[in-house]
Simulated scan of single mutants.
Amino acid sequence: MSDLEEHDALHRLLGGYLLGGLDEADTDRLDEHLHDCADCRAELDRLAPVPEMLQRLPDARHLGGGAPLAVSPTARPTQQNIEGLLSRMRAEKTKETRVNRVRWLAAAAVVMIAAAAIGYGIFTNGRVPQGTTPEALPSVELVTTQFESAPGSGLTGSAVLTPKEWGVAIALDVSRMSGNGPFLCLMRSKGGGTEQSAVWGDTGNGSAKVNGASSFKIGDVDAVLITDRDGKVLGTASVT
């Protein structure tokens, strides 16, 4: 008999093994087989509740009107033997589950690291030089300057200038503006040229928070000016 035929023959005896219906020779053969066959142990685990279920059925000892059902609590194999086999099988399942969980966590960690790396590339506009760590990147130095009001104006506030590759971005936070809108923010270069960097309308309370930009490089900016629609200067913030 081949190994496969032997396996199939013993597999068919599992029901009788649980119900104590095998002779001593078949029980010993199946005992030895179960220690080395995971498939049969899995089937044994699936069938393990059957004897108890049969005992609980109404008239279980006379099903079908035939002979009493032989489910002997003292028949071989012993309950300890079955439980020992099932415990071994469940321990193997637990070990396999634990290994699979560790592998899953490791894969998840790789995905999270990759996502973090992609996110870093996005927030740095993908311009991180090869071989350069984030700590080695130059920090952006912001320039903050305060407005001085022009004669007859009560304008107060600040301007924050951020260097960019293409020029400079500006964030205005001003209040106590007077005059007629629209109001303009102008950047004046050290060479005397000016560029309009922002424009906005009347705010009702004389306060505004506005963002703008200029093509001037940060090192070329001399001052930031706020004017009304007639060109009257309301305040100047010098950039040193």
Rank of each mutant, 00 (worst) to 15 (best):
H7R: 11
H11W: 11
R12N: 05
L13M: 12
L13K: 14
L13E: 10
E24F: 01
T27N: 14
L30D: 03
E32N: 02
L34N: 06
C40T: 01
L47G: 00
A48G: 00
M53Y: 14
Q55N: 12
A67W: 12
P68E: 15
T78F: 04
I82A: 01
M89D: 04
A91Y: 04
T94D: 09
K95D: 08
T97K: 15
N100D: 06
N100R: 14
R101E: 15
V102R: 10
L105Y: 06
L105Q: 04
A107R: 06
I113Y: 02
A116S: 14
G121W: 13
T124H: 14
T124N: 15
R127L: 12
T132N: 00
P134G: 03
A136P: 02
V143D: 01
T144W: 03
F147T: 05
L155N: 15
T162S: 09
A171Y: 08
D173H: 12
V174C: 07
M177N: 09
S178D: 09
N180I: 11
N180S: 10
G181A: 13
M187T: 11
R188V: 12
T194P: 00
S197F: 06
V210K: 06
V210N: 01
I218G: 10
D222C: 07
A223V: 01
T227N: 06
D228V: 04
T236I: 12
A237P: 07
